[in-house]
């Protein structure tokens, strides 16, 4: 007859499983953080370029950006990962690690989303400021760098924070390429120890903690760069 003691043993075993796997999972969280940081930074740089092209570019540039965004928002992440890793880079005979390809693909997708965040922010700025900048003798490039972007990026932080939490969750799919991030490690241990619940539970909690830390940090940044007296 199963007694109370069995549960105690179960619970204890679960804790032991988590404890034993924790260093291994924590190492995985570093890989996850690396993936997400790489993807977000690539997405930021490329997203800004795409957004500026979308708003200020001519017909051709606008169409190119439109197709880019349509493609990377439309194709599933897993398809893109396989397409780039097993398809494109093998075909081109370029040897990149699974980690690099995953960060790259996540970054290219994020760039599509980020470009739309920045585009919206740029369009929400009063256009008179751009005029005033040009009236001072600034080139379009300088006006965009010194007047438009500093304001547009500030306005983008809340949406960017949201994008961060999405990329963080998406990064678990990199498991499919064999990148040893948190999900891959949880699966690896679980399939050997059969402690499925405690391991996936721990992985889930670790994702939540990373989401929390990231969005808190960005919330803090938003307050810090808020323009005094500017109602939002």
């Amino acid at each position: 007859m199963p007694g109370v003691g069995d549960h105690v043993v179960d619970m204890t075993e679960s804790f032991i499983a988590i404890r034993d796997a924790l260093p291994y999972l924590l190492h995985g969280s570093m890989v996850t953080i690396g993936l997400v940081c790489g993807a977000m930074l690539l997405g930021l740089a490329l997203g800004i370029v795409l957004a500026v092209g979308h708003v200020y570019g001519g017909q051709v540039i606008r169409s190119v950006v439109g197709v880019y965004v349509w493609f990377f928002r439309g194709v599933p992440l897993l398809v893109l990962l396989f397409l780039f890793y097993f398809g494109l880079f093998s075909f081109l005979n370029i040897n990149l690690s699974a980690f690099t390809v995953a960060a790259l693909v996540l970054g290219l997708i994020s760039a599509a989303y980020q470009s739309q965040i920045f585009r919206g922010a740029i369009l929400s700025l009063p256009e008179g400021q751009f005029k005033a900048a040009r009236a001072l003798g600034m080139s379009d490039r300088k006006s965009i760098c010194y007047i438009i972007l500093p304001q547009a990026l500030r306005l983008s932080i809340p949406a960017w924070s949201n994008e961060y939490s999405i990329v963080l969750k998406d990064s678990a799919v990199a498991y499919a390429l064999g990148v040893m991030e948190m999900m891959a490690r949880a699966h690896f241990v679980a399939s050997r120890t059969y402690e499925h619940f405690p391991l996936y539970f721990t992985a889930g909690v670790m994702f939540l903690i990373l989401t929390y830390l990231g969005t808190r940090g960005l919330g803090f940044l938003e307050k810090k760069v808020r323009i005094p007296g500017y109602a939002r």
Binding site: P126, Q129, K131, A132, L136, G137, I147, Q151, R154
Partner: peptide, 20 residues
């Protein structure tokens, strides 16, 4: 063009200050 614009100061109805 850019040099010429520097030589003309422009004041707008709604100021157009740089908010940031």
């Amino acid at each position: 063009l850019y040099e010429y614009r520097q030589k003309l100061g422009m004041i707008f109805q709604d100021f157009n200050l740089f908010d940031h």
